[in-house]
Design a protein around this nucleic acid. Sequence first.
RNA 1: GCCGCGUUAGCUCAGUCGGUAGAGCGUUUGCCUUGUAAGCAAAAUGUCGUCGGUUCGAUUCCGACACGCGGCUCCA
Length: 672
Amino acid sequence: MPELSLSVAGAQQSVAAGTTGTDLFGSDRAVVAVRVDGELRDLDVVLDGAQAVEPVTIDSPDGLSILRHSTAHVLAQAVQQVNPDAKLGIGPPITDGFYYDFDVETPFQPEDLKKLEKAMQRIVNTGQRFRRRVVTEEEARAELAGEPYKLELVGLKGSGAAEGAAEGASAEIGAGELTIYDNVARDREGNEVVAWKDLCRGPHLPTTKLIGNGFQLMRSAAAYWRGSEKNPQLQRVYGTAWPTKDELRAYTERLAEAERRDHRRLGTELDLFSFPDEIGSGLPVFHPKGAMIRMEMEDYSRRRHIASGYSFASSPHITKAKLFEVSGHLDWYADGMYPPMRVDEERDADGTLRRQGQDYYLKPMNCPMHNLIFDARGRSYRELPLRLFEFGTVYRYEKSGVVHGMTRARGFTQDDAHIYCTREQMRDELASLLTFVLDLLRDYGLNDFYLELSTRNPEKSVGDDATWAEATAVLEEVALASGLDLVPDPGGAAFYGPKISVQARDAIGRTWQLSTIQLDFNLPERFELEYTAADGSRQRPVMIHRALFGSIERFFAILLEHYAGAMPPWLAPVQVLAVPVAEPFNDYLEDVVAQLRAAGVRAELDDSDDRFNKKIRNATTQKVPFVLIAGGDDAEAGAVSFRFRDGSQRNGVPISEAVTIVRDAIADRVQV
RNA sequence: GCCGCGUUAGCUCAGUCGGUAGAGCGUUUGCCUUGUAAGCAAAAUGUCGUCGGUUCGAUUCCGACACGCGGCUCCA
């Protein structure tokens, strides 16, 4: 029998012709697929002609994707078992799970998901094998005659457009051959029966048994076929799948933790903000405690901006249409703006126009206003870089389906700055700006970052190629110099210029896009901004847009979730809550609170009629950083006792020392 | 904007197969109060999201709208 030599898991080895991945790794149940010369393949692939083969275990990123993809197939099989008329869309793996889209008469209800889960479990338990079969386009068309969406994918593949067909479509039709996977079960006599089949690139698990009971259907939702609202809406079922039940449990616990931290929930529980229906969707009001957090966030930011050479600006919330015609916003983003208010229009009794009205718009961005400030008088190169900063409140008419708490609001306040500089200054300015941004974010308690570079979308941009290329190159250089990971985001730029965005990971590992630094060669052009250079010539400044928090509301929400409501002392609305052991110590603590307040600490006394234990509980649920307790022992010693958030304590601390401890924790912006 | 689900006291939620409603927490009041997560008792509180329709009668059934939630789409 001919032998072949290949690298098996990194070691050169000689194996018989016809050897499969199963032969090599089948004894290890954790191995669910193989990587053959870089390509993921089914475990039972015949290795003839291969150079190198690596095992893929179920707990590796590739293995998890395969697990989730196979689970998606089982879902589709279950759906067609329950409802043979369901047409299949696509069903790729996604982060932590999978989805599958179906065209069905009636959308899935929660009870349907329960039923489908049961049906899936039965399929899993039968231990079906996934068997790969290469088909020609004609064969595929014949077999999939009843699956219009799959046929469309086959057609797309024929035209070479598969990759762009839809997010996830490549999971069904890869780059290579067209393949169908048969799900093979055994009947009572032990004969093989094809229970189900699906057009699919694979690879898949060797058997559905490996799905075990580590999967769960999460929710259903509508989704447009191939992601376009011009196409029919399919019903999407989301699920999650893990190698073991324990890992599934850990995942659902993570979700529960995220829900406990949800800023909308914490906002209510901690009395920070609300969204009154009377005001309108996406328009929050801040309650005293929330407003205090916000004020601290803003004040600290202002001080840092002053220290870094920023000038401050302030501008109105509405403006005549003309300004947004000049800026181009009405051309590009009128849909995202609140409709105009028409003022000063006069008509005769018969309705004929007597006096032309004027349209005013709520501003969706601050930059046009800042440009007018720049342009209010002649500017010299000696003034550059000119850094205009404003907490500018903007209004965007987000579609009703996307408004989401404070992370996606319709009215929000940007910590917005526009920097006008010369081309020569651009590089240094961007470099110091990125440092400034990252330092400031760290002061708010975030420290795990990566960067994203968004480059031009040719279909949605203005300006010439050379300008874009230069701007992009400078941004990339600065980003790389930061030493942080840089992820490309092709086509993700705004219409007026490329950008770097800072992505931050929070305490439970989620990433948020925070600061953006955008270059803009186009607005200075539109506003005809100029400065006088050293040689007396008129030059056009470069404009840099940057927001650090993005919006205060959104950053507030992110910090709230990051800290799970337990804000560090400097941001906490109530920094100290004084709790007497019993009523006779109210006066004693009243005096302590007065001393703390004199030292600039936000301190309160709990002199309610609640019992001591209840007061401790209230302080805990309100997540107050320092609870100061005093009873007989403390009062006699002129001391107080600390109770910290973790339940630990420090008793008998002299009052003056206690004030110092609290004041220092606030000044140092530490978490406690 | 699209699809689905939801909206009952300040909050979380139960309930009414059509005859106008409950719990816990919170609030108010009274009695109480000495060491680290809920003292006891009483009371008050709802146009059952809004507007229409069906009905003798609608919080309940139907429709529209508003708001919210999960996605899609979008995200300067």
